[in-house]
Amino acid sequence: MRSVGQTALDRARAGDERAFRDLTEPYRDELRLHCYRILGSLTDAEDMVQETLIAAWRGLERFEGRASLRSWLYRIATNRCLNALRAAGRRRPPEPVPPFTPPEPTRRGEPTWLQPYPDTLLERVADGAPGPEARYSLRESVELAFVTGLQLMPPRQAATLVLRDVLGYPAAEVAVMLGTTETAIKGTLQRARVALERRRSGVDRERIPPPGSAPERELTRRFAEAFIAGDVDGVVSLLTDDAWLAMPPAPHEYHGPAAIAEFLRASFGWSGRGAARLLPTRANTQPAFACYLGEPTTPAGLLVLTLGRDRINAITRFLDSDLARHLPAAAERR
């Protein structure tokens, strides 16, 4: 007697699209998150999931069942992401032109293609336990510092680290997924770990306020009040001495309270002509605010805060106004 799963697979192989959707739909959300980690862009990740499912549908007859269907889909998705990066290089969004003259940035940073990952989408990912060799939790592996670190290493290193240290696939299985040897995977993984830890070396996770905790709520409330009031000193008083301000897809990055204050004075001086609103939400498991300007309100991107123990380590303002479509419906109606 064939199992229900095998029967569905047989129907899908025979051309039953509904059976194929029943088989693959449970993995759509986690595949999107996987592609996002490698690509750093939610828009690109959504496109890549569609390509993955199309490729899986067309190649279903070649699925031999030696690995699980989930692993097979991850193999396709990973290689689709890597092929896309090799074929066209990093697709850089056009640099926005600010409506005011910003001060000279501390540096012009990467990656400008980075987008946030709203927690409303993250909550849809099945809370399955990763493989026994995983080193990072779901929460850690979607934080902005982690995703940014992945973008700054060669794509195959990033893919190897995600497959091994986030998803916990064994080295032998990752070697099959990436078409290489287990020895090569071990070497690539070691280099990726060193690069990522160097990027995250200043993060003291034990001192970060837990999500939804009173310290987190108090710090984000004070930030929102100062930001809405255009109170530069109030915002700066909440920053660590080593804080950064970034604004993807603009490459401008400002380091330290003095540089950030100079930028905020220019920005608040321009936006002060219209009322600003911040609606609380979450992205990349971090506290965030949807930004709206003027009357009637116009979407103005998303602010994501990276917190330390009692101060803000980084402010990332994503300027893409289309991000509002991923906000909770309740926030959109306010």
Rank of each mutant, 00 (worst) to 15 (best):
S3P: 06
V4W: 07
R11E: 14
E17N: 09
R18D: 15
R21H: 10
Y27V: 05
R28P: 01
D29I: 10
L33M: 12
T43C: 02
E46N: 05
D47C: 08
D47T: 09
M48F: 04
Q50C: 12
Q50K: 12
T52D: 05
T52P: 04
L53D: 02
W57V: 08
L60Y: 01
S68R: 08
R70I: 10
W72V: 14
R75D: 10
I76H: 08
R80G: 11
L82K: 02
N83A: 15
N83K: 12
L85V: 10
A88T: 13
R91P: 06
P93H: 01
E95D: 14
E95Y: 07
E95A: 15
P98M: 07
P98L: 11
P99G: 05
F100T: 06
F100M: 12
P103S: 06
T106N: 04
G109H: 00
G109S: 11
Q115Y: 03
Q115C: 10
L121Q: 06
V125I: 13
E140Y: 08
V142M: 12
L144T: 14
L150I: 05
L152T: 07
R156A: 12
L163D: 03
R164Y: 01
D165Y: 01
G168S: 05
A171T: 13
A171D: 12
A172V: 15
A175I: 11
G179D: 07
A184K: 07
A184R: 10
G187L: 13
T188F: 03
L189T: 07
R191C: 09
R198G: 13
R207I: 13
R207E: 13
R217C: 09
A229K: 07
G230Q: 01
V235S: 01
V236Q: 02
W244F: 14
L245N: 06
P248I: 10
A250I: 06
P251N: 03
E253G: 12
H255S: 12
P257C: 08
A261L: 09
E262M: 06
R265D: 06
F268S: 04
F268K: 01
G269D: 07
R273G: 10
G274A: 15
A275D: 12
L279I: 13
N284D: 13
T285V: 13
T285D: 08
A288I: 08
A288H: 00
Y292S: 10
P296D: 03
L303A: 11
R309Y: 07
A314H: 09
I315D: 00
P328W: 00
P328D: 00
A329P: 00
